[in-house]
Write a protein that binds this DNA or RNA. Structure first.
Lengths: 324, 324
DNA sequence: CTGAAAGCGCTTACAG
DNA sequence: CTGAAAGCGCTTACAG
């Protein structure tokens, strides 16, 4: 069942079938058009996207490299990418790689001839080289900045973290701990500056993975301190969820015994106990901007006028874990 | 940069380039092979998967239709599908469709020429017709059974639910409510039979969506009853998470005031407060079986010997929300 | 308005 | 062991 079958059924050439199915680039006489459409219908013909892709040099597919999808935050991100891509007529090829090499994921997606890729993983220069080599447009998403040559759309982690910690200070906390990755990243700097700005000494820092398990272990360490903080800033929702469990098990009331604020603000954070006050990321905007960027919707703007890094603002979602 | 460039750089025909890159179907002299590989390396050549797919009639892509990926359970399922597919050299095209028509998703995936699709959504006869029309192999996953013509790999929901409710009864509960979809499905039957088997009257049933919000609302309804149940079986992790929040807000202790058991057992269920006792689904096995089925790994078995429906056993994960 | 034909980048049966 | 050539199913410049 190919275009040729439809053509012969309708008594036309395959060119005319294309013209009517694609609404161009040539006009087709209304009567002819009707015959073609009728043939398509009765034969149940569906165009072969692979052949079309080969001819056009475009698959209509975008790739997404993401650590994992079974995580409230990245799951939401993936959902949003799928929705936004579908709205633009693009299909989504998902490449999960939590432990693996980003470079490998990039190469595999490129081999599949995706029209572009969104990379939601930290990238190094090596990965950027893979992108350049592949010749496929790519934009880094969910990261404040990346290696040279790859534009990024991220979130103002510094500002979001700083605002969150200031909020904790407004609640009267003087000792605010940090659960982070220990890499001195933007969130850690925001936390530190909020404290310094209020004339407060930096609280304890625990370096852990961005997982529930990490948050759980971090709280245990914090509670073992001679002088535990009265509030803690967790660098991800997942960490905060783990932190809450450790706090409950240790019978430390939240927020009374320890206040908690999380970074991410995925939908899941509204259903913990107590509900998490969180720094919400502008997910939809971030994805839309990244896709705009990827598809070069701003080709009328000179590339040099575009900042290589775009930072979006966060929003503080006040719920109960902070004391509100 | 195509196969022809490599061929001329190596001084051979394009056929030989194919033979060496694909390790067949013809042998290549070692020296020639080396020259080709060298040319590939220096030119940075990558085969065009689209052209290959057109020629071979196989894209090496599988499609997945799933309601949403930002849900601990379906996120885990999607992760597993990606991993298992990648292990077989297949890429994953994800088609999210929470509100939309399953039929539409099937048609779009088929148009992309996927080699097969996994459908993790309830299907009706209309959807089955779309599958048949598309001519693409499909298997229904995560559902006990589907319309005729579509094989399915699911989980023994009846048995899992029954076992969970029996466990609640062992804890001494006599009034066990059900949060379900109100469709009298397998889980509801398992719940009812466990109660009946113990000579207990059926507890109250609340019909709600399989979401956190649904579970939240359901508990509010249960608590408003003149004689609320002392335990409740939630048909999904998400519902259980919402139920816990409603219980905490209503200051009903768990499991003391109300015990909770959930169906699904995703990783998130271990980090709620209290941790959820849950009926865990054999995710990896389910996905592997579904892919085996999809790829016809059992072609040596007569199709008629294969059950159209395959049911996998669940496991009860005992944590704290049940009273253990 | 319609059609014959080339070509996208591969793979492989056929011939040497 | 190697190569010339056909063909997968489309799209579109070119000609009529």
């Amino acid at each position: 069942m190919t275009r040729a079958d439809v053509a012969s059924a309708a008594g036309v050439s395959t060119a005319v079938v294309s013209y009517t199915l694609n609404n161009g680039p040539k006009n087709v006489a209304p009567a002819t058009r009707e015959r073609v459409l009728e043939a398509v219908r009765t034969l149940g013909y569906r165009p072969n996207a692979t052949a079309r892709a080969l001819r056009l040099g475009s698959t209509g597919q975008v790739g997404l490299v993401v650590a994992t999808v079974s995580n409230p935050y990245f799951g939401q991100l993936t959902d949003q990418v799928e929705r936004s891509a579908a709205a633009r007529g693009l299909a989504l090829l998902v490449r999960t790689n939590s432990g693996g090499l980003v470079r490998e994921a990039i190469e595999q997606l490129a081999a599949r001839q995706v029209d572009g890729m969104l990379i939601a993983r930290p990238m190094d220069a090596n990965d950027a080289a893979a992108v350049a080599e592949s010749g496929v447009p790519a934009v880094l998403i969910n990261e404040a900045s990346g290696p040279a040559g790859v534009p990024s759309v991220g979130v103002d982690r510094y500002g979001g973290a700083r605002r969150a910690v200031e909020h904790l200070i407004e609640h009267g906390h003087h000792r605010v701990g940090l659960i982070g990755a220990g890499d001195g990243g933007h969130r850690q700097r925001g936390w530190a500056d909020a404290l310094a700005g209020a004339g407060l000494p930096p609280g304890p820092v625990v370096a852990e993975t961005y997982s529930r398990e990490g948050g759980y272990r971090a709280v245990l360490q914090l509670l073992a301190l001679p002088d535990p903080p009265t509030a803690v800033f967790a660098s991800s929702d997942e960490q905060a969820v783990g932190a809450l469990l450790a706090l409950h098990e240790s019978e430390v009331p939240v927020p009374g015994g320890m206040a908690v604020i999380a970074f991410d603000g995925s939908a899941a954070s509204a259903f913990t106990w107590p509900p998490l006050t969180a720094v919400a990321q502008p997910m939809e905007m971030m994805v839309e901007r990244a896709l705009d960027r990827l598809l070069g919707l701003e080709q009328n703007v000179l590339p040099t006028e575009l900042p290589s890094t775009e930072l979006l603002p966060t929003e503080l979602l006040r719920r109960r874990s902070c004391g509100c």
